Simulated assay, not measured.
Amino acid sequence: MSELSAQAEKEVEGEKASNSVPEKIEAVGESAPEEQKVMSAVDTFLAQFYLSKFSKQIALQYMKKIAADPSDDNERVKAWLMRGMNKIIKAPDNCDEWQRGCPDKVPGIRAQAVWDTKDFDWVERIEENFNVILEELVALEGLDVSGFQPYRAPAANDKIKNESDGVGVEATDAGSWNVFYLSLGKVMNFDDNRAKCPKTVELLEGIPGIYGHSFFSCLSPKSHITKHNGPTNKKLRCFLPLTCGENARLRVGGVERVPLQKGKILIWDDSFEHESWNDDETSRITLIFDIWNPDLHPKERKFLSFLTNSQLRAQKKIVEASGNEDNFFSVIDRAQYLDVAKEELWT
């Protein structure tokens, strides 16, 4: 996999030779000590994804295949792999200063806070179905159990506001944030919610490059979601405001006031530090969903998705076995049973 070395040369430059992994993954024809060093680096890197023996072989075969690929279809993943194997912490050169707080940054992806919706041919179709989506949202108000739950994160991840009910922490320092999950990767089941909004789900699944995270998001009046970074630049976040007043606002990186307009899609990169306010007297409800960053080739998306899904499945099993309830999966699951006042949703 000598091609990988060329992609990582700039990233590795300046690292101490004694700490640097040889700049190739495939060790065929090399001396035994160097081969062992290379394979040790590969094993250490892949261990974080908890791959089974079979899945690990698939990953290794893919890594060998892309190393020999003369096209640029896998250039970003090549660079990402080399950074991981060489344990490089410094942000890629292409990243913006507002992305520093994002833990997983793939090299070679544009650092662009807000994207032009004209570059995405599916936007018009979603906007044309605004009333279809709104109708399914409004129908939730008449249900005994709407499906909305407080947004919570593991307490260990944040020190904003530990909740007295023992279920994680909120992401707000004013007001409240409640969510209605439709999908969250492939390891959590929201079939009941999806059954309540079948047309919305169908529309989302028809979007090219859909990432697999989608939910209705409700900010109650006078709410503020504190500043934070998303987990990765592999994806973009899409907003479709369904109820939205004039004083709802969003900051993304250095863009202090990103326009929010009812019925109009907004596409932005949540790996940038961001925060959100609803200063109106009415709730702001938005359909939120993620798409793969279009700078990633479909081959790269497939490989990255393969690793991520393996990691999430394994982590879910680990935390279930440990009994630790302060984790991503348990917090979301337990938050489903917390009461949400109707006035927080439908004001």
Rank of each mutant, 00 (worst) to 15 (best):
S5V: 07
S5Y: 04
A6P: 00
A6K: 13
A8W: 05
E9G: 06
E9I: 09
K10I: 04
E11W: 00
E11N: 10
V12Y: 01
V12A: 10
E13R: 14
G14D: 08
E15L: 15
K16I: 09
K16W: 09
K16H: 14
A17T: 13
A17Y: 02
A17W: 07
A17I: 11
S18V: 10
N19H: 12
N19V: 07
N19I: 07
N19A: 15
S20T: 15
V21L: 13
V21D: 05
V21I: 13
E23A: 11
K24H: 10
K24C: 06
K24T: 07
K24S: 04
K24E: 00
K24Q: 11
K24D: 00
I25H: 00
I25D: 01
E26T: 11
E26W: 07
A27M: 02
V28I: 12
V28Y: 10
G29N: 03
G29W: 01
G29Y: 00
G29V: 02
E30H: 02
E30R: 05
S31G: 10
S31A: 10
A32L: 14
A32G: 06
P33F: 02
P33L: 00
P33C: 00
E34N: 08
E34M: 05
E35G: 15
E35A: 14
E35T: 07
E35D: 09
Q36D: 09
Q36V: 11
Q36A: 13
Q36M: 11
Q36F: 03
K37I: 03
K37Y: 02
K37C: 02
K37S: 02
V38H: 00
V38T: 08
M39A: 08
M39T: 07
M39S: 08
M39F: 06
S40L: 06
S40W: 05
A41F: 02
V42F: 00
V42P: 02
D43V: 03
D43Y: 04
D43A: 13
D43M: 05
D43I: 00
A47M: 07
A47K: 11
A47D: 15
Q48M: 04
Q48D: 12
Q48I: 04
F49R: 04
F49P: 01
Y50M: 09
Y50K: 10
Y50D: 09
L51H: 03
L51C: 05
S52Y: 08
S52C: 06
K53P: 08
K53E: 14
F54P: 06
F54N: 15
F54A: 15
F54I: 14
S55D: 15
S55K: 14
S55M: 11
K56T: 09
Q57P: 01
Q57C: 02
Q57V: 07
Q57L: 08
Q57N: 12
Q57T: 12
I58T: 14
I58N: 07
I58F: 11
A59T: 06
A59R: 03
L60M: 08
L60F: 03
L60C: 02
L60I: 15
Q61C: 04
Q61M: 09
Q61R: 14
Q61F: 06
Q61A: 14
Y62M: 05
